[in-house]
Design a protein around this nucleic acid. Structure first.
Lengths: 331, 331
DNA sequence: TTGTACGCGTTATCAA
DNA sequence: TTGATAACGCGTACAA
C-alpha cells in the first residue's frame, strides 16, 4: 500500500504538495501537477480513508435502520430491496454504511441511541418505515444531531428529508378500485398495519374518506403487518364482511390463505406489490411501488444534505395493478 | 465526543495511562485504574475507532460477497439470511462489514479486485457460494492476501476456512428418499445448478452414485439456479422423465409451476428448504439448512483466523423434510 | 508504576 | 507556487 510519502518521494515534491494536487487546489503549477499524477498512477496510490477521516475530523458513515420483523421465518423482501438500493448508492458515493435493525434500539433512551451511534462514528441515518412508537428515534430526528432521511415517514426539518409515496391516495385508489369491481360492498373489513406507524395512519385516513363517499360500513382491525395475526382476524371477522382491504401484501396473503382454508371466497386487495405475491398465484389488486428506487432516492437526498442542502419532501410514484408470476420471474 | 485527553485530564493522569487501563495492561495500580474508569464512565468515553486503526495500522473490515442474481425481481432470501447473520455477528465482534455483489467483480483481474478491496481497507472476506468461474476471487484466495471464509466452497489454507453442509450426502439423501417413495423411477431428470459452482459438482456426483446403486437412467440439464431457465428445461424434457430432482428450491418451484401449467404431474424434490416454499403450498422433499446459522458460524471462523488460528473445514447439519406454510409464518 | 515522545497518513496553515 | 510543520486521537517503546 503506497502512502502519500511514497508518492511525494517519487514525484520529488513535498507531501503537502501531493495533497494539494489530489484535493484540486488552484495554486499548483501544471508541471508539478503532472509529475504528481504520474507518480500516483505508477504506484496505484489510493488515499488512506482512515487517515483522511482522522485529519478532516469528519467521517461520513450512514446507519441504515431497517424494521425487519423476526416474527416470521420469511425475511421481508421489501427490506432487502431497501438495503440493496442503499448498498449500490453507497458504492457510488463511496460512503460507508452500517446496517441496523430497529428492534436493536427498543428499550433504549434517545441519549443511549445517540451515543451508541456516535461511538460507531455514524453521522447520518436512513430510517425505513419509522414507527411513532419508536420515541427514541423520533427524538433523535427532532434534535437534529444526525443527517436523516426518512423513508415513508413525513417528517422534514433542516437536517431531515423524507422520501415516500402518497400513501393516502394510493390506499384510496386501490380500495376504491377493488370495491367498485364488486357487487356486494356494504361491509368492508380493513386490516390496518401497526399502530403508531405513520403509513398506517395515512392509509387509514384514506379508508375513512372512501367510506363517506361510497358509502359502506367500515370495520377496522390492526394486523400489525403480521401475517399470522391477520390470519386470526380473518377467522374471527371475515364472515361479517363483503370485501377485505389489507394495508400490506403480506397481510393480504395471510388473509387469502386463511379464507381458502375456511372455504369461503371474499375479494381481497393488498398494498406494496411484492414479488412474493407472484409465487402465491393470487391475483389481487395491490399498490406497486419500487422499493429499490425509493432507497436509492433516499441516499441521493442524504448526499444533498451532506453537501449543505436543506431537508425536503420527495414523493415517488406508484401504480395500482396485479402481480403476475410470469412477470416476476422474467424481470 | 470526549477524547482520551479529556479522560486523562479528568482522572489527573497521563493519556498513556488511560490507554493502558483501557487495554488491560497489568502494571497499573488499582487506585489509578479506578480513577480512570470513573472518568471514562463519567464522560461516556468511547475510543475513536478511526484513530485506533490509524495508530495500530490494522483496520479489520470484512467484505461480504454475496452472489445475488438479478435475473429475477425476487431477491433470494438465502442471501438475505446470510447477510442478516453476518450483520448480527459484526455487531457482536464490533467489526465493520461491507456488502458486495459478486457480479461487481466479473471482468476484473485478481489484481484489480485486490487493490479495489485494499483501497477500501478491507482485509477479510466472507464469500458465499463461490463459483469456480470467478477466477479472480479464486486467485485471491490462493494468494492468501486476505483472511477468507468460504461458505459452501471446499477450499482451505492457512488464511482460509470453509463452512458448508455435506452437499454430497444431502443430495444423495433427498433424491434417494424421493425416488424410493415413488413407483415409477426408471428415468430421473436432474436439474443441476450453475456450471463451475462447487456445490453443483458435489451434488451432481451424488446423483451419479445413486444412479449406480438403484439404478435408473439419469438425464442431466443445467438450470443455473435460474427459475426461468428451469421452466424451459421442464417444458422440453419433463415428458421423458418419471421423477425430477432439482438442485435448488427456486428451480424446483419453477419446475412445479411449469408442470402444473402443462397439466401433468411428476414428483419433484428440491434443495435448501427456503421459507418461500411454504407460500407456494407445494409439499415436496427438500434439504433444509440454516443459512442464518451458517453465516454466523462463518463469522466466528473469521474471528478465529484474525486471532491467529489456522484455516479449517467446518461441516454444518441439514435435514431432509418438507416446508409447511403454517410452520413458516409462526416461526 | 507513571509520564514523555514519537509514529500512523492525511489535511490545513503559514512562512518562504 | 512550494514546502515545512502542526494538528487529528490513539498506541507504545522507553525513560523516569
Amino acid at each position: 500500500m503506497a502512502s502519500i510519502n511514497d508518492v511525494a518521494k517519487m514525484a520529488g515534491v513535498a507531501k503537502s504538495t501531493v495533497s494539494k494536487v489530489l484535493n484540486n487546489y488552484q495554486l499548483v503549477s501544471d508541471e508539478t501537477k503532472a509529475k504528481v499524477e504520474a507518480a500516483v498512477l505508477e504506484l496505484g496510490y489510493v488515499p488512506n480513508s482512515v487517515a483522511v477521516s482522522l485529519s478532516k475530523k469528519v467521517f461520513n458513515r450512514v446507519g441504515l435502520i431497517v424494521d425487519i420483523r423476526h416474527n416470521s421465518q420469511f425475511i421481508d423482501e421489501i427490506d432487502m430491496q431497501y438495503l440493496t438500493g442503499a448498498f449500490e448508492k453507497s458504492k457510488e458515493y463511496q460512503i460507508d454504511v452500517v446496517t441496523f435493525f430497529s428492534s436493536q434500539f427498543e428499550g433504549m433512551t434517545a441519549k443511549q441511541v445517540s451515543s451508541y451511534l456516535e461511538a460507531q462514528r455514524i453521522n447520518c441515518l436512513i430510517i425505513y418505515n419509522l414507527s411513532r412508537e419508536n420515541q427514541n428515534l423520533v427524538k433523535l430526528i427532532e434534535k437534529q444531531e444526525f443527517y436523516c432521511v426518512l423513508v415513508d415517514s413525513p417528517i422534514v426539518n433542516k437536517k431531515t428529508s423524507s422520501v415516500t409515496i402518497d400513501h393516502f391516495t394510493a390506499q384510496y385508489d386501490v380500495a376504491r378500485k377493488t370495491i367498485e369491481e364488486n357487487k356486494f360492498k356494504s361491509k368492508v373489513l380493513y386490516i390496518a398495519g401497526g399502530r403508531g406507524s405513520y403509513i398506517t395512519e395515512q392509509r387509514l385516513e384514506a379508508m375513512k374518506k372512501l367510506k363517506e363517499e361510497i358509502p359502506f360500513e367500515l370495520i377496522v382491525k390492526h394486523g400489525d403487518f403480521n401475517e399470522y395475526k391477520t390470519r386470526e382476524i380473518i377467522i374471527k371477522w371475515a364472515k361479517k364482511a363483503d370485501i377485505i382491504v389489507c394495508a400490506s401484501d403480506m397481510m393480504a396473503i395471510g388473509a387469502v390463505f386463511a379464507l381458502t382454508e375456511m372455504d369461503i371466497f371474499k375479494p381481497v386487495c393488498g398494498f406494496d406489490g411484492i414479488p412474493l405475491m407472484g409465487y402465491t398465484k393470487i391475483a389481487m389488486n395491490t399498490v406497486r411501488q419500487d422499493f429499490f428506487e425509493k432507497s436509492k432516492q433516499a441516499f441521493d437526498e442524504l448526499k444533498k444534505l451532506l453537501d449543505g442542502g436543506e431537508g425536503q419532501h420527495i414523493v415517488m410514484p406508484y401504480k395500482v395493478c396485479k402481480i403476475d408470476y410470469m412477470d416476476v420471474i422474467q424481470k
